[in-house]
Write a protein that binds this DNA or RNA. Structure first.
Lengths: 234, 234
DNA sequence: ATGTGAAAAATTGGCGCCAATACAGATGCC
DNA sequence: GGCATCTGTATTGGCGCCAATTTTTCACAT
């Protein structure tokens, strides 16, 4: 594996913490994959993970199996596990699903939102804005996640929030690349405030339009990334 | 267990077949849970599963872990795995998500549907209708699944179809109970034909209304099923 | 030098055993 | 007679080892 840090950040911290050691390892690996520390197509050798994360073999295998279920890695019998290569078509499908889910939740959001919720969303948007000049990309990413997670949470359906989180985590390697463009981040920042404004006005239509644009904007430009180490070739 | 044979039927055959033994076992267990063969709250003893399905201990553990991830069973350390008790609130949330997803896919469906697709949907609706008098509940269930799966598939987003399948599988114990009512099955049958009609007319609004009603109709009447063996008490 | 073959090293996958823990029943005490 | 405790048992969970398979290396022949 490439030059990942020691603790591998575990910045995700998603779901509920404290299920087991294997769960923590799976989250750490998932974070490493989405952060780009583990390249697409790279083989995940059990021994390397075992040594790198100081984990037992069983936990490694369990974590890898969990990542297979999350569709973040693929498994070939007697060959091993490898990171899935980014599939533009799959990513587009997942984005479309996200659009449906998040715009579909708008009605419930607008119906249930209170003034204090609007104020909190305003605060979250401002937090992202404050992090814009000096914050790291990871900080911005987390602030963005917090904003959208809280916004979605207003619909009162925790399952929907969890589902969208899971979907976001399944977009392969899209987490790092698209955020590097400065102009795009600023665009996102503006859209955040526009969303808060639409939320304050209880304007469901405007909020839908904004969310759709916000999600669909995150497409990668290059449709065919060449020169990847393909794991399927043998 | 109901009238399952030796191999426990594996009637679902969902997702893609042939990942491994543990995957087949997980699917079999999931089917047993949804069919009501394994009662809510019941403890899933590894030895019983091992003997019942003639599986190795490792496969049992892997399958159970997979079901934990699917949220069909819960795990308490050093205590074991038990079937989740049906949570009406959770089921309602999942139903709401399904409504959002399936109605959200209607636009794409109407935009992409061809006449031959309409004809096929008509055929699937007739298949359900033909099974209505003499077919078993499982047959009806499968025909219903086929109808909705094919309808959703018309939107051209395989990920969305997979997601809805997964969601449907996560509605706890709702699969068997509500289908026992004859009038409800006939109502569903009528709605199938109404959906095909709306599909033929490319009437997105009507299709949305029908799908919403079709999903939301499947609520359980009894909000508090008493007398279950609660696994949390200790 | 290059392609072919086999041997060797590395990696994965399976399986069984044993300790840790929880459950049940019996026993003793109040 | 009821209750607490103790012992026996069943079940879970962890750990390591070994076989099966793959990948690499290396020698050899063309």
């Amino acid at each position: 594996m490439s030059g990942g840090g020691t603790g591998e950040t575990n910045r995700g911290t998603r779901t509920k913490s404290g299920e087991g050691r294997h769960d923590a390892l799976a989250n750490a690996l998932a974070g490493a994959i989405q952060a780009g520390a583990l390249a697409p197509g790279e083989w995940l050798k059990q021994i390397d993970i075992e040594q790198r994360y100081a984990a037992k073999r069983m936990d490694v295998r369990r974590a890898l199996d969990r990542l297979v279920q999350k569709r973040l890695v693929m498994h070939q019998p007697n060959r091993g596990y490898h990171v899935v290569k980014p599939d533009g078509r799959l990513a587009q499908e997942i984005r479309d699903v996200r659009v449906i889910l998040e715009t579909g939740a708008v009605d419930a959001i607008v119906a249930r939102v209170r003034d204090e919720d609007v104020a909190q969303m305003q605060r979250l948007a401002q937090r992202f804005d404050a992090l814009l000049p000096g914050g790291t990309i990871i900080d911005l990413h987390d602030a963005n996640i917090a904003f959208h997670g809280r916004l979605l949470g207003l619909c009162g359906n925790p399952e929907l929030v969890l589902l969208v989180e899971e979907l976001r985590g399944r977009i392969p390697s899209a987490g790092a690349g698209q955020w590097q463009k400065r102009s795009r981040i600023e665009q996102s920042n503006r859209e955040h405030f526009a969303m808060v404004e639409a939320l304050a006005a209880r304007d469901a239509g405007a909020l839908r339009t904004l969310i759709r644009a916000h999600i669909l904007q995150q497409q990668e430009e290059e449709p065919a990334p060449v020169g990847h180490s393909r794991p399927a070739e043998r």
